[in-house]
Simulated assay, not measured.
Amino acid sequence: MARSATRKRSAVPTADGGVNPKAPCPCGSGRRYKHCHGSGYAPPVTRPFEGLPGEPHWVALRELVPAATAPLRTADGREVTLASVLPGGAPALVRANGEIVLGAQLQTSSDDVSRDLGTALAAALEAPKGAPVEPGPIGGAGSAGPRLQELIDLDAPLEVTVHPDFGFWFEGTDAGPAAQAGLEQANAAVLPTELLPDLGAAYWVRPGGERAHLRWVRPEAEDPLLDALARLRAAEQITLGEGTRYAGAFRAHGLVVPVWDLPADASAGEWTGPAREFGDRLEQALAVTDPLTSDERRARAGLLSRQITLR
């Protein structure tokens, strides 16, 4: 009782009319005021890539795909190449021929990844040819540049090309021995990955061993997608066929990424048909608006228990 009373007293305004910095923040976050709105705190952006063409692919290149590129166009018509990752985790680079390359996977990030990448892109657009890109602070409170949504042409589709290695790092350049050694080391860690055609952000990957995986970044909002997956699971229609198993899901940047275990001895192309059939079943389940049955609610709880948040 005494402890509760102390908390209540600490929440009253200070003598100068401000909020006691040790008091719970009035916003209801549960954090102390000095660690919340009293420090300029802003809540994380749940879906930083929302509104960008190919939002699921942005999530995939940021979190799941080792080596891939995609052409971008800025709002003022400049051409840029988006890469899954650049040497040393660099945020961006400008080649000697003026080509701008933006890296999706950064070494640090703030609560708004879109602003982090936008800050790097804005710096690259101003950097001279062949010069290092110096975007300033990225991933902290000092990252205050534009968001990607302010810089990218929102009408240009995102078309991803998956590469077997990081050879695109030094295309058109004469890389020295040290760079070549770094490239070989990075290539050794690349997992075989392929994008299934005409299925959105559905990526097949074979990490070695007895299983391969299909990781499918879905564009739907989380709650209706989980309801639809629960309906399919309760109806025993969530697998991709014989020898496959629904393994769980990632949650990354506000989107859900269902994952299936697949036999490793089958090629990526063999799963295009089964994945398309599953996509049709999922669309039908998404269209159902009836409340979940008891079996479907249990299935949904099971799906949530096997969901891992990447960010």
Rank of each mutant, 00 (worst) to 15 (best):
S10N: 13
V19T: 12
N20W: 09
P21N: 15
A23F: 02
G28E: 07
G30R: 15
Y33I: 10
H35F: 04
F49A: 01
G54C: 03
H57K: 13
A60K: 10
A60R: 13
A60V: 14
L61H: 07
L61W: 09
L64Q: 07
D76I: 10
T81H: 10
V85Q: 02
P87E: 06
P91S: 06
R95D: 11
E99Y: 15
E99C: 12
G103N: 00
A104V: 12
Q105R: 11
D116C: 08
A123V: 06
L125Q: 01
P128E: 15
G130E: 07
P132C: 00
P132T: 01
R147V: 03
L151R: 00
L151F: 03
L151P: 04
D155F: 12
P164K: 02
F170R: 05
G172F: 07
A175D: 10
G176M: 02
G176Q: 00
A179I: 03
Q180K: 04
A181Y: 04
A186T: 02
P192V: 14
L195E: 11
Y203S: 01
V205C: 02
R206V: 15
G209R: 13
G209S: 12
R211S: 12
D223L: 14
D227M: 09
A228T: 09
A230Q: 01
R233S: 11
E236I: 07
Q237Y: 12
P263Y: 03
D265T: 15
S267L: 10
W271I: 07
G273Q: 13
A285E: 15
L286V: 11
P291W: 09
A299L: 06
S305C: 00
